[in-house]
């Protein structure tokens, strides 16, 4: 196993593994720049309507399930910690801890998705799901619906990103267990870590846009 790892060679277009690793990370940074603008288009739309329909958005946001949103924020922030611990373990070349921390990261991601699913059920019971079941209690129904459309688009898109992240993290755990990072080259892990932190950061922004706005006074 370690022999195979020791024979690790850079791909043809790179001079050495260091160049290959740095290039992979730069690639992920550029991809994340794209993602910022991708989510940014939707958030710009949200902010435009937030300014136009301030009071209605406050009223709509009060119907969001803030305890789940808060717990989920804690879950994801913790998962970023375990992700970093996995990368640290890789830097220390300790195979078992990498696997454990990666599995913990993936598990926290799954907990988030489970809670999110439960929250969607609660939203349905609160009758705030556009198209399926929508009977808002307060505010101008049109503007309130704009808020909830944004809520579902944004959180579903985030959930898709998170699901991809969980698959990647799990895949990395399998590779780590097989000793792929024993030789000290763990750029793939760092790249996945970057992506994971990004998905986490997006959630922090979504949390701020969705949950607290109607409750601040």
């Amino acid at each position: 196993m370690s022999q195979r790892a020791a024979a690790l060679k850079p791909e043809m277009q790179y001079a050495d593994l260091a160049q290959q690793g740095e290039t992979a990370q730069l690639g992920m940074w550029i991809f994340l720049a794209t993602e910022v603008l991708f989510f940014g288009g939707m958030m710009a739309a949200y902010l435009a309507y937030r300014m136009t329909y301030n009071a209605d958005f406050d009223a709509a946001a009060k119907e969001s399930v803030i305890w789940i949103g808060s717990v989920n924020t804690a879950v994801l922030v913790t998962s970023s910690l375990t992700m970093v611990m996995a990368i640290h373990a890789a830097a220390e070349r300790e195979r078992q801890p990498i696997v454990y921390f990666l599995l913990a990261t993936a598990a926290l991601g799954l907990i988030f998705l489970g809670l999110k699913g439960y929250e969607y059920v609660e939203d349905y019971n609160d009758a705030v799901v556009p198209v399926l079941n929508f009977h808002p209690k307060e505010g101008n129904p049109g503007a309130v619906e704009l808020f909830w459309l944004f809520y579902f688009y944004a959180t579903l898109l985030h959930a898709v990103h998170l699901t991809i992240g969980i698959i990647l993290v799990f895949f990395m755990a399998v590779r780590a267990k097989r000793g792929a990072f024993d030789a000290g080259y763990y750029a793939p892990l760092e790249v996945v870590g970057l992506y994971w932190s990004f998905v986490d950061t997006v959630w922090v922004f979504l949390f701020a846009l969705i949950y607290p706005i109607g409750r601040s006074g």
Binding site: A45, T52, V131, P141, G142, E145, L146, L149
Partner: peptide
């Protein structure tokens, strides 16, 4: 049949044009 740019619920078609 309903969405963020739909004027019927207060959405703004000009927002689509900006984006």
């Amino acid at each position: 049949g309903i969405g963020l740019f739909d004027p019927a619920i207060g959405g703004d078609p000009l927002l689509f044009q900006h984006l």
